[in-house]
């Protein structure tokens, strides 16, 4: 709303592709959670990941910012390979420091908020930009206050997370992620831990963000949100992409049996 005028139209490295995942595999011990995920997310697009629990959608999301290491395949964000460097046809593992630098451009919002309980709302939002020398303290404070105002919490700067409702906490978490000025936002079931009457305020904040052209990947069970805001819907089950396409088409006329069965239960 404030300073994102031209960002959706800005051309990115690979013809407007923000995320490109190829044949991503991930196992936890003997359990293969991701069995070859291919996915492309364009710049400025809202991509919703849908699927039953255990289908691997959260794991896939965590692979995108390297919170989970993938076993095979490639993930590129804005053209950069995540977690590895490719040189002369060989892959080199990145140092922690370089992984951290990559993550700065990727915001993440968690199901359980994960706000820092020992810091005020304002400190939560300005901690990373100040610590990582992205901005001077005064600048970071101003930006943080602006972001909190934008998520409707301009009057809660001095509050501690424990004094806020779940919906308010999640909105602070969104502001905290935005403070790093990311080019991509990942949402891991952002409304699943909320009381039903608080879901709306968080979804509204996310809609607002989508309208401003932020590239978003959202793992969600909110079919309404996917239909209204999503540009692309991906249905996953058993570690594979079962079906994908325009959200309104997939939701109203699913092609695959498993998608039909899932939607019948959820809708």
């Amino acid at each position: 709303m404030t300073d994102t005028t031209a960002s959706p139209e800005t051309p990115t490295a690979e013809s407007g592709l923000m995320v490109r995942a190829e044949q991503v595999h991930k196992s936890f011990g003997p359990l293969e959670v991701l069995k070859g995920i291919d996915l492309e997310v364009r710049s400025g697009e809202v991509c919703c990941l849908l699927g039953p629990s255990g289908s691997g959608k959260s794991t896939f999301l965590r692979c995108i910012n390297h919170l989970e290491k993938i076993d095979a395949g490639r993930i590129r964000v804005d053209g950069d390979l995540i977690g590895y460097r490719e040189r002369g046809g060989k892959l080199y593992e990145m140092r922690d420091r370089d992984v951290a630098a990559q993550r700065r451009a990727i915001g993440m919002v968690f199901q359980r908020f994960n706000l820092f309980p020992h810091m005020t709302v304002l400190q939560n939002v300005m901690e990373a930009p100040v610590l990582l020398r992205q901005a001077k303290k005064a600048q970071a404070r101003e930006h943080a206050a602006q972001l909190l105002d934008r998520v409707g919490l301009g009057d809660k700067l001095g509050a501690y997370p424990g004094q806020l409702s779940g919906g308010q906490q999640q909105r602070v978490a969104i502001a905290r992620a935005l403070a790093m000025r990311p080019k991509l936002m990942l949402f891991d079931e952002p409304t699943s831990a909320l009381d039903p009457e608080l879901v709306g305020e968080v979804l509204d904040t996310m809609k607002d963000l989508a309208r401003d052209g932020m590239t978003m990947i959202v793992v969600t069970h909110e079919i309404g949100f996917a239909r209204e805001v999503g540009d692309h819907l991906v249905f996953m089950d058993g570690g594979v992409v079962v079906e994908q396409g325009d959200p309104r088409e997939v939701i109203s006329a699913p092609q695959h049996e498993r998608t039909k069965a899932f939607l019948a239960k959820v809708l």
Partner: peptide, 21 residues
């Protein structure tokens, strides 16, 4: 809570920074 470390990691903090702050 493990989630605290993950949230800080996602923001791009280093191991030492996460520990200290």
């Amino acid at each position: 809570d493990e989630g605290q470390t993950e949230a800080a990691q996602a923001l791009g903090m280093s191991r030492a920074q996460i520990l200290r702050r």
